[in-house]
Amino acid sequence: MKSSKRTKGLSVEAVVATGVGIAIVFLLKRFLPIPTGVPNTTIDLGEAFIGFLGAVFGPAVGALVAFFAHLFNDLSWGDPWWTWIVADAIFGFLIGFSRNFLKLRTEPLTKKKLIQFNLLQIVANIISWGIIAPLGDILVYSQPAGKVFLQGLMATITDILSIGIVGTLLISAYARTQIQKKRLTKD
């Protein structure tokens, strides 16, 4: 008799990926920020790794990695900026839905799937950095609209480029390892 019982929560593999992902994204955010010229806004390669983890492990891992890595990074500089931490978690959650159509572990990666991934990451970036973070800064911290929307626009553009280049390369490299595994079968 087949069991239809579903397990709840994250798998051991997803928990490990979350912990390792938090560490890697924290290190990328903390020690590899590339200045943009807009105050408190950098080119963030950590977002590309969040995109990769979301694509492999889904929304929960994407959200948790983004939330905690951003929180720890902010704490390393001083006070946490909660509106951007929450926006990052929302980004990680949204990009995690790419796992549903990429199916990196079971299907070959196609150009169409990469285009879909990049369209999703563009939308997720616009929602998170172009809307949620600036509006949160205005409502929670009473920041000037011009300043925070400029920061949000710069973060949106740089994250789209970072994920579009580095995230796409990470996903492509990972997909090649998954396809190779399938080819290694016993005769």
Rank of each mutant, 00 (worst) to 15 (best):
L170H: 07
S162Q: 04
I34R: 11
S11M: 10
I24E: 00
I115F: 13
I95H: 04
P33V: 07
V38P: 07
G19T: 11
K103I: 09
P59R: 12
K8H: 15
S162A: 15
I157K: 13
F97H: 05
Y141A: 13
V16A: 14
S98R: 01
K5N: 11
I95P: 01
G167S: 12
F117W: 05
G51R: 09
I127P: 10
G164A: 11
L119M: 13
A14H: 08
G58T: 01
P59C: 12
L75T: 12
V56E: 00
S162H: 07
Q143A: 14
K5Y: 13
T158V: 15
D159S: 15
P59Y: 08
Q121H: 14
T177E: 09
G58Y: 00
L139P: 07
R105P: 01
V148L: 05
L153W: 12
L139N: 07
K8D: 12
L161T: 05
L94T: 01
Q143I: 11
E13M: 10
D74M: 09
F101H: 10
L94Q: 04
A89Q: 06
V61L: 08
A66L: 06
R30V: 00
S11G: 11
E107G: 02
G46I: 00
L53S: 01
L104E: 00
G9F: 11
L45G: 03
T106R: 13
V140H: 01
V15I: 15
V15K: 08
P134C: 09
M154Y: 12
V20G: 05
V56L: 11
W129L: 06
L71C: 11
I115A: 14
A173N: 12
F57R: 07
T7R: 14
G51N: 10
T106I: 13
A145Q: 13
A145E: 12
S98W: 01
I163T: 14
P39M: 08
V123Q: 09
L153R: 13
L10H: 08
I157P: 03
F52N: 00
I24M: 05
E107W: 03
D79H: 10
I179Y: 13
I24P: 00
A66M: 06
T18A: 11
F72W: 10
S172R: 14
D88T: 11
G58N: 03
I126L: 15
L27D: 02
K8W: 14
L109G: 03
S98N: 08
V123I: 15
N118I: 07
G136N: 04
T110E: 10
G136T: 11
